[in-house]
């Protein structure tokens, strides 16, 4: 049994210009000890996926129309509001993108980490206070006894993100969802945060969902990648296969549009056009208007996510041939 299974998830939002499908039949699974990257541009549905798992889709205007989210085989969408809350933080944790906005400005960071133990009734050995200080020490905060009493605005961006991460992993969750944890940081600090996440991943046996649009971070951290476009997963592959041999034209375009050090190519090729308007998605395949391989069929039939090799799938009528 997979640790976390998302199946045919559909999430929609009411907007001033009509109802939009933020997720349109998303399915994936996550195993223990695995890092799955959700890769895509903004608006592709990565963060909505995380919100749906954490029961954070604002309702109204959003709603989960159908689908299934199973954790250790148990259906989350059938649990009560409070049962979902008890799982959140405790068994499934979320790391936010912007730690300055995500930490409460009026409580000390020590208080906010300690709250994790208190909410879930955990009594770590030696007491909550000691556990908080040990945790701050472990994530590389100097002088943790003093720093625990300070407030979020007294920390640098990188330190705040580490505190966010420490808070998420405090009570040892089974699933850690990191929603663009490095996007708001300087490049040098990004590397430190990625290292910290890699360390946590090695030490715990948790499964990790890593939401990003940054291929470099994907290459460094992920085992498997799910590429998202306009509310659907268009390709899944292990990280080496994706970088060597992407099948979906969108994945190929994404790889060609970002600089890489592992190939001789020194010219970046942008994907033409821009992400489609979610209120009026193109008929058939949503990517067809930007796709160099599109033909008549693409406008008529939405390509299903089909197996194109061992452990890998792509949703394309005319996938790129194996290299």
């Amino acid at each position: 049994m997979a640790l976390l299974e998302v199946e045919n998830l559909q999430v929609s939002f009411d907007t001033a210009s009509g109802r939009i499908l933020a997720l349109n039949g998303v399915s994936f699974s996550l195993e223990r000890g695995e890092v799955l990257a959700l890769l895509g541009e903004s608006g592709s549905g990565k963060s909505v996926t995380a919100a749906a798992i954490m029961d954070l889709v604002p309702n109204p205007p959003g709603a989960i129309d159908r689908g299934s989210i199973r954790f250790h085989g148990a259906e989350l969408l059938q649990l009560s509001r409070n049962e979902r809350r008890d799982l959140c933080g405790n068994r499934i944790a979320l790391i936010f993108q912007d730690a300055l906005a995500a930490l409460n400005p009026v409580y000390s960071v020590g208080w906010q980490i300690a709250e994790m133990y208190r909410i879930h009734g955990r009594n770590p050995e030696g007491g909550v206070e000691k556990a908080v200080i040990d945790l701050l020490k472990a994530i590389g905060i100097p002088d943790p006894e003093r720093r625990a009493r300070q407030y979020p605005h007294e920390f640098s961006g990188g330190m705040r993100q580490r505190i966010m991460i420490a808070m998420a992993v405090a009570v040892g969750p089974d699933v850690i969802i990191a929603d663009e944890p490095t996007t708001a940081l300087d490049v040098t600090i990004q590397a430190q945060v990625v290292d910290l996440l890699a360390t946590i991943r090695k030490r715990s046996n948790a499964g990790m969902i890593f939401i990003t649009h940054d291929l470099g971070v994907v290459a460094e951290l992920a085992d498997r990648v799910a590429v998202m476009y306009a509310g659907r997963i268009v390709e899944t592959a292990n990280v080496f296969e994706l970088f060597e041999d992407a099948r979906h034209p969108y994945s190929v375009g994404l790889l060609a549009s970002q600089p890489r050090v592992d190939t001789d190519e020194d010219e970046l090729v942008p994907i033409p056009g821009s992400a489609p308007n979610p209120v009026a998605l193109p008929s058939g395949c949503a990517f067809r208007t930007r796709c160099p391989r599109a033909e008549g069929l693409c406008a008529e039939v939405i390509p299903p996510l089909e197996t194109v090799g061992p452990g890998r799938q792509a949703a394309c009528h005319f996938p790129v041939s194996p290299a």
Binding site: M54, D55, L56, R81, N82, R85, D86, L87, C88, G89, N90, A93, L94, F96, D98, A101, A102, L103, N104, P105, E115, M116, I119, H120, M167
Partner: peptide, 17 residues
């Protein structure tokens, strides 16, 4: 509507808290 309220929910805090 602030992000830190989303964080509190993600941490598992119930509505009253």
């Amino acid at each position: 509507n602030a992000t830190f309220v989303r964080t509190a929910r993600a941490k598992g805090a119930r509505d009253g808290r």
